[in-house]
Amino acid sequence: MRTKAVIYARVSSVSDRQDTSRQIEDLRKYANLRDIEVVATFEEHISGAKKNEERQVLTDCLEYCTTNSVHYLLLSELSRLGRSTLQVLRSLEVLHEAKVSVYIQNLGLYTLQPDGKVNPIVSILITILAEMSNIERSNIVYRLNSGRSNYIAKGGKLGRKTGSIKT
């Protein structure tokens, strides 16, 4: 039986400013080189700061993985799974209970050992990295708000220019 995997790709922007094609192509190449069959691909355009319950595509992906005898969930990086440590750990728990190992491409790590047990070192790393991602999200929000406040304090105005007719 051939090893089966699912690809999950996410970008934060709902506009055409970002897309998931790079993530998907890189993960497909990885799977092909290792003779892993990609049986499904899930793409989502939503902030990783949202709770899992608000991320329908992620929810569908996790359900697919746990009900279709998938061996691996392939991610380009851990933050694709989420920016909240708790949400990431919840997703991993669901997958690990179903013996689905998560492969994180930018780290070259699998969350499960070949015997199906959780890799304890990877588990520690993921917890730390998920928390670092959470901190980075907070820093981004801080910098954006600080920049806006600074701009306004110097006389800048936010919003559309007077007379704009754009919707």
Rank of each mutant, 00 (worst) to 15 (best):
G156V: 12
I128M: 10
L112P: 05
A153M: 15
K157Q: 15
V94E: 06
T162N: 12
S79V: 01
L92N: 00
N134R: 09
T127Y: 11
E93P: 02
E43N: 10
E43F: 11
S84H: 02
L125M: 15
I46L: 14
V70C: 10
T162Y: 12
I128H: 08
S164Y: 15
S21N: 10
G48H: 05
T41Y: 11
T167D: 12
G159E: 13
E37Y: 14
L86T: 09
S91G: 02
S149M: 11
V100S: 00
A130Q: 04
V6W: 01
R160I: 15
I121F: 12
E131P: 07
I104C: 02
K4T: 15
Q113K: 07
Y151I: 13
L27A: 02
A5P: 02
T59C: 05
N150K: 13
P114E: 05
L95Q: 00
G116M: 06
S13N: 08
Q18T: 04
G48K: 01
E63Q: 09
L125C: 13
T3K: 15
C65Y: 02
I7G: 03
C61I: 03
D26H: 11
L158K: 08
A9Q: 10
V102T: 05
L109C: 07
E53W: 03
I128A: 09
C61L: 04
C65V: 06
N32D: 13
G108F: 11
V11F: 01
R143S: 13
T67C: 11
G82Q: 00
R17L: 04
E63M: 07
S133W: 08
V70Q: 08
S79K: 01
T20M: 05
K51V: 05
T20Y: 03
R17E: 04
T41W: 11
E93A: 07
N119P: 09
L78D: 00
L27Q: 02
Y110C: 14
A9L: 07
I152V: 15
V122K: 12
V14G: 07
V88Q: 00
